[in-house]
Design a protein around this nucleic acid. Structure first.
Length: 604
DNA sequence: CTGTTAC
């Protein structure tokens, strides 16, 4: 019944965004045959339930008969009869009002410093023949086009507005898996479209689903929760999710620390389907009983390996396991990252049920999209060396502007000091780190994005997830201690199939990274300096047992014999979540004898 | 005092 995206696009050469005066038809139902009674009916239900004070979670496409009585009630509420107390929040604000107020998220240009053509197009050629590996039971097949998946007319419209022509590899595989309701652990290269990969199915699921009525006023009952490790990343995900859900009736709210909580509370009170948050602020909201997780149907962890490592794990466990969130199997859980160390995979399986593991070869860091250089630089020479790089780059500037350079340092003090020094030496720089106020952080990021200060000095607060267009050069002024952090840092360039440059300053202090860095560069067909190889050979292998071969950012730990040994020898509870690995690999024909110690050969 | 994450 519903039209494909392609059909709807061609049918909508006239701007479909303009509502007609007499009978407003929401975008997700436009271009349907006008005689389609179910569409009309479901629209009425959706409109009322979504809009009327969030008194219910009825959503577009709802056809279930057991809701028909309520739907009528919603309709009358929508029509202005309303007067129904006990709604989720006491504020008025009918659906039309909410709809009118919805800001068009596609009108904000971020005053791109480069041309539109360069800024929006994804270079799909760079993603041809990406190796993809899946494991788990009954893996749904990938799709080749957005038209093959019915995300609904409104979402299709937004996909078009985003200028997405076809899904990226991680989207091609992850979206059908999530739409099938499966839990997912997805490992895909930086800059390859992971946000959309988990947002689309969530939005679509909320639009199609039928959900019970939120039980209490003044408390938010989101249906989906998206957690990320930094405030800026949560903001970015929120911005993206708003685009994808524009005019769908699905409400996205963001909550993070360092910003006044009152405004966030007000937004939550207006109703929320998808809550994007950082862990600290969410815990606060949960403790204040302003948010309940009891209606969560979708849980997504972005940068999931970071979320589950030492620094965040207790908070995540509290949120996911010790509050009122439904357990695995009841909710759908999706974990995404560019890196997924096996220890973290093992931890993560606590949160998953019968999940599918998906690995997509790392375009960003394992191909030549990012040219990686390592230079031997003593601590005392780093500043002048950086100055040389920046001078050289100044002459390469595009359109008379200096190309954007992101400089990573190890400490917050170091970031302040380097920013100051750069400014004193004629290089307009900003800095971002966790000791800055949120206002300062956001200002620095904006100033960098617009090219006003084409150099940004950052701690790892900016290492993950941030999508900053036109970063031409990432400098690891101080190398991180963990190779995965390096992968994420350099992934701030070379996004959406574009090329980038990454330069690292290496010295004796980084010896422990030598081996893994050298291996990584080799896998990515980068030139490894002879001196680095000597460092690598000399040092013990401090890095992780990474990659399992050159093609993937990680391998499903369930395939690793050493973990099976661990399971049979002792704690088996990481199988307890129902991870089913008896059969069904989509590729490879691996030995299915799981749980039998030592049967499978080592993959790494 | 590697960094991130609430008031």
């Amino acid at each position: 019944m519903s039209m494909s995206w392609a059909d709807s696009v061609s049918a909508a050469e006239n701007p479909a965004g303009a509502p007609s005066k007499s009978a407003y038809v929401p975008p997700h139902l436009r271009n349907r045959p006008s005689t389609d009674p179910p569409a009309q009916a479901s629209y009425a239900g959706a409109a009322a339930s979504l809009g009327n004070d969030h008194s219910g979670y009825g959503v577009p496409n709802m056809v279930g008969s057991r809701w028909s009585g309520q739907r009528n009630e919603y309709q009358s509420g929508y029509a202005g009869g309303g007067g129904r107390g006990g709604g989720w929040n006491g504020r008025s604000g009918g659906w039309d009002r909410g709809r009118v107020r919805e800001v068009n998220p596609f009108t904000n240009d971020d005053s791109e410093p480069v041309t539109e053509q360069e800024s929006s197009a994804i270079n799909f050629d760079a993603y041809e023949d990406i190796p993809v590996e899946t494991s788990g039971d009954n893996v749904p097949p990938p799709v080749n086009t957005f038209a093959e998946i019915d995300l609904g007319e409104a979402v299709n419209e937004n996909i078009r507005r985003c200028k997405y022509v076809k899904p990226t590899p991680v989207q091609r595989h992850a979206i059908p898996i999530s739409l099938a309701g499966r839990d997912l652990m997805a490992c895909a290269q930086t800059g390859s479209g992971k946000t959309a990969a988990f947002c689309f199915p969530i939005i679509s699921g909320i639009m199609r689903g039928q959900f019970p009525r939120p039980p209490r006023p003044r408390m938010a009952f989101p249906l989906a929760l998206i957690l990320s490790p930094t405030r800026e990343l949560s903001c970015q995900i929120h911005d993206e999710a708003k685009k994808f859900s524009y005019q769908t009736g699905v409400r996205v709210v963001v909550a993070y620390g360092g910003a006044p909580i009152n405004q966030q509370l007000r937004e939550l009170e207006r109703g929320v389907h998808i809550l994007v948050a950082t862990p600290g602020r969410l815990v606060d909201l949960l403790e204040r009983a302003r948010v309940s997780l009891q209606m969560i149907r979708y849980l997504a962890l972005d940068e999931a390996d970071r979320m589950l490592d030492m620094g965040f794990e207790p908070q995540i466990r509290k949120i996911v396991q010790q509050m009122d969130m439904p357990p695995p199997g009841v909710r759908q859980t999706m974990l995404f990252s560019a890196t997924f160390p096996k220890e973290i995979q093992r931890l993560a399986s606590d949160f998953l049920s019968s999940y599918i593991f998906l690995a997509v070869g790392r375009v960003g860091s394992s191909t030549d999209l990012i040219v990686q250089r390592v230079e031997y630089v003593q601590e005392t020479d780093k500043r002048s060396h950086l100055m040389d790089l920046l001078h050289a780059q100044k002459e390469n500037g595009v359109h008379g502007k200096q190309a954007l350079t992101l400089v990573f340092v190890e400490t917050k003090k170091g970031a302040d000091a380097l920013e100051h020094w750069l400014c004193m030496n004629g290089f307009p720089a900003a800095a971002i780190h966790g000791d800055r106020t949120q206002q300062e952080r956001e200002h620095a990021l904006r100033s960098f994005k617009t090219g006003y200060t084409p150099i940004l000095v950052a701690t790892d607060v900016a290492a993950r997830g941030l999508d900053i267009p036109h970063v031409a050069h990432v400098v690891n002024f101080d190398l991180p201690n963990d190779i995965d952090d390096y992968v994420h840092r350099i992934g701030r360039t070379g996004r959406a199939g574009k090329t980038g440059l990454a330069t690292a300053f290496f010295n004796e202090n980084n010896s422990s990274l030598a081996r893994s860095l050298s291996d990584l560069m080799q896998e990515a067909n980068q030139e490894v300096p002879a001196w680095l190889s000597r460092f690598a050979a000399r040092s013990t292998y401090g890095g992780k047992n990474r990659r399992g071969g050159a093609r993937f950012g990680a391998r499903d730990f369930r395939r690793d014999s050493s973990y099976n040994r661990g399971a049979s020898g002792g704690s088996t509870d990481y199988y307890g979540g129902g991870a089913n690995m008896n059969s069904g690999y989509a590729s490879g024909g691996y030995n299915a004898s799981y749980g039998t110690a030592g049967v499978t050969s080592a993959w790494d």
